[in-house]
């Protein structure tokens, strides 16, 4: 057991112990679930999705696309994105300039400082 322990100098990480604890937690969750009522039958009216009385949307309308997630994050960070995204121009000559600028900064950093 000790052989699997990874020491980081400040702490330790043993995946085997973690996996055992994870398995115990899963067993506990399964046991608690078993205490509950059995599932309702999947057929008939009781098996249908209930969305506040609205009709269930079609599969195309029922899936939230990738762009709709995290709009709050990107909106909150729009000041950052407004500056960083335009730097990715897709223009090769711009990228060459970035290379030259980075080399110049590195040289100042290494050669002068």
């Amino acid at each position: 057991m000790i052989a699997e322990t990874l020491y980081t100098g400040f702490g330790a990480w043993n995946p085997i112990v973690w996996l055992v604890a994870f398995a115990v937690a899963i067993l506990l969750a399964w046991f608690i679930q078993r205490l509950g009522e059995p599932d309702i039958p999947g057929d008939g009216e009781s098996g249908k999705s209930y969305i506040s009385g609205n009709d269930e949307p079609s599969p195309e309308d029922g899936h939230i696309g990738g762009s709709n997630l995290y709009w709050g994050f990107t909106d909150a960070m729009k000041g950052y994105y407004a500056r960083v995204v335009p730097l990715h121009t897709g223009c090769l000559t711009d990228y060459v300039l970035w290379f030259l600028g980075t080399f110049a900064l590195l040289f100042i950093f290494i050669g002068v400082l």
Binding site: H88, D94, F99, G101, T102, L106, F107, F109, I110, G111
Partner: peptide, 21 residues
Amino acid sequence: VALALLIAGLALKAGAVPLHF
């Protein structure tokens, strides 16, 4: 000078920002 050239060139190859484009 050689070191700055090597770092810039190899960092570009490694895809490090700001040479990741």
